[in-house]
């Protein structure tokens, strides 16, 4: 407290010496500068949207709606269709959600109800450090460690086990190279785990302790308390956390670029090389010689922008409605 009182004293002292007018002017100036900085955020967001819309006009005019419906991606003939990257973005994100969300809820259940109190802090920090690992590290690890492991063990087993089944089998065909949609989706799943878990832990913490205690009081098991009391109470915030994870998965670039194989071909098999919007941008943007090629890539960027911002905004609205301030 000492320093603050000093600060107040110092403030009055120096003001006493000033003419009356100057503090008022400084006040107005200070206020305007901070407002300008806050407005800068709005401007840059508007700038991003505007630039993407303007610079993708060439491609929008050339291909129209066909851009979204065809999978031809031919820089030589200058014909571009975004179906393959859109498909890849959606498929890898779906796999990521199928893997990451159950894992995140498992971690949340563990940290909320099962974990010994002394371990709770260190374990939460460890899970949150997973979120701090740069995505390029996940990519390298995926390429050099996970992909060879998938090729040697997981994919042959899946082909033998599920390949012969009529419809589902189509998903598990082709040579087991290790890279491809499935590996990319798995890495994304692990990457979104800490985000979803961090939000879930915070919204679960907002549940009034009385509800938990009442449920335990009538003899509910730990799982029943979690499933029937905590999760329903925090459902909106939890859904917001899941959407936040989806937003990350849709836009993640480097981790995917390493293991996706970069092929603009549509394939039903999850083992096939594919591409996502962000991976196409990372791989091709600096090599795009012609204006139309570059404009097509920018249109891809515009699609990604619309997709992720819609998801992220929905996530934030749900988190805001769930009450408690969530920090991610």
């Amino acid at each position: 407290m000492g320093t603050q009182v000093e600060a107040v004293a110092e403030a009055t002292e120096s003001d006493g010496a000033m003419p009356v007018r100057r503090p008022l002017m400084t006040e107005g100036l200070f206020r305007s500068v901070t407002l300008a900085a806050a407005a800068f955020l709005l401007l840059s967001l508007a700038g991003i949207a505007l630039l993407l819309v303007v610079q993708s006009q060439l491609s929008i005019r050339a291909f129209g709606i066909h851009f979204l419906l065809t999978d031809t991606w031919n820089p030589v003939k200058q014909v571009f269709g975004a179906l393959a990257p859109i498909f890849g973005t959606l498929v890898t994100s779906i796999i990521a959600m199928l893997v990451g969300v159950p894992l995140a809820f498992g971690v949340t259940f563990f940290l909320a109800e099962l974990c010994p109190f002394a371990l709770r802090g260190p374990l939460s920090v460890a899970i949150e450090l997973l979120a701090a690992v740069p995505s390029i590290i996940f990519g390298m690890w995926g390429l050099f460690v996970l992909a060879p492991f998938m090729a040697a063990h997981v994919q042959p087993a899946l082909i033998a086990l599920l390949g012969p089944i009529p419809v589902i089998g189509k998903l598990f065909q082709g040579p087991p190279f290790g890279i491809g949609m499935l590996t990319a989706g798995l890495i994304l799943g692990v990457m979104i785990l800490p985000y979803v878990a961090a939000v879930a832990r915070q919204v679960i913490a907002t549940v009034p302790p009385m509800l938990r205690e009442a449920a335990f009081g009538v003899g509910a098991t730990r799982w029943e308390v979690f499933r029937r009391v905590l999760v329903p109470y925090a459902s909106k915030g939890l859904l917001g956390g899941v959407m936040l994870g989806l937003g990350r998965a849709l836009g993640e670039t480097m981790a995917v670029t390493f293991v996706i194989g970069n092929s603009h071909r549509l394939s039903a098999s999850l083992f096939a090389a594919g591409t996502t919007i962000s991976a196409s941008l990372a791989n091709e943007f600096t090599e795009a010689e012609s204006d139309l090629y570059q404009s097509s890539l920018l249109e891809l960027g515009l699609i990604l922008f619309v997709l992720t911002f819609a998801v992220l905004m929905a996530a934030r609205i749900m988190l805001a409605q769930s009450g408690g301030k969530v920090k991610v």
């Binding site: 991003i48 990350r248 849709l250 962000s278 960027g301």
Partner: peptide, 8 residues
């Protein structure tokens, strides 16, 4: 913006 894709 905090969670927007950095490639954008």
């Amino acid at each position: 913006l905090l969670s927007a894709p950095s490639i954008i």
